[in-house]
């Protein structure tokens, strides 16, 4: 027997979209992520001599294979940034924060991460920031919890 269902009686089922597989990250990304586990940040030297952080297996400009790792510092300079007054649910911080391109000491190419600066007035291009390491690290980009202004502590 069929019967009409009102809108409040519409049948529904839970649906979770997921791609349930694992990937190997390979010799370069893998080494970078394992370095984070030990609070070490490694970049890689590009064909033109510049140090790229985070490293890639291939030169982004010439596609040549890269293999010369270079350890860089865990502090650096803000190249550009944006200020998130209202963080989104998935953002790495749940209070107002900055996204920044950060050129780490010893690196040439800036990397993207979040900066827990407290207020927008503490952010500026050229300002110094340093890594805040996550206490329990697993070999993941978020082992870097965020950066913070170097004068914070």
């Amino acid at each position: 027997m069929s019967q009409d269902l009102g809108p409040e009686e519409t049948l529904s089922a839970r649906f979770k979209l997921e791609f349930d597989y694992t990937r190997s990250v390979g010799p370069v990304v893998g080494r970078f992520l394992m370095g984070l586990l030990q609070r070490r940040i490694e970049g890689i030297r590009m064909s033109d001599g510049r140090v790229l952080v985070p490293p890639t297996e291939y030169d982004p400009l010439t596609s040549e294979s890269l293999d010369e790792f270079v350890e860089v510092g865990d502090a650096g300079e803000v190249v550009s940034w944006s200020w998130v007054q209202v963080p989104r649910e998935k953002h790495p911080l749940d209070r107002p924060f900055a996204w920044a391109l950060i050129r780490l000491d010893g690196a040439d190419v800036p990397m993207l991460h979040a900066v827990d600066a407290g207020s927008e007035s503490r952010m500026r291009s050229g300002g110094r920031v340093k890594v805040r390491w996550r206490a329990e690290r697993v070999g993941h980009i978020r082992d870097i919890e965020c950066f913070e202004p170097e004068d914070a502590s």
């Binding site: 985070p54 944006s82 790495p92 996204w99 993207l112």
Partner: peptide, 24 residues
């Protein structure tokens, strides 16, 4: 998927970084 997506930098946040480069 390894270096950027896990941080969830949304499109507006990234475009804002670019806009600041332009402004500065």
């Amino acid at each position: 998927p390894y270096y950027l997506a896990p941080l969830w930098p949304d499109t507006v946040s990234l475009a804002a970084i670019q806009a600041r480069v332009l402004l500065e």
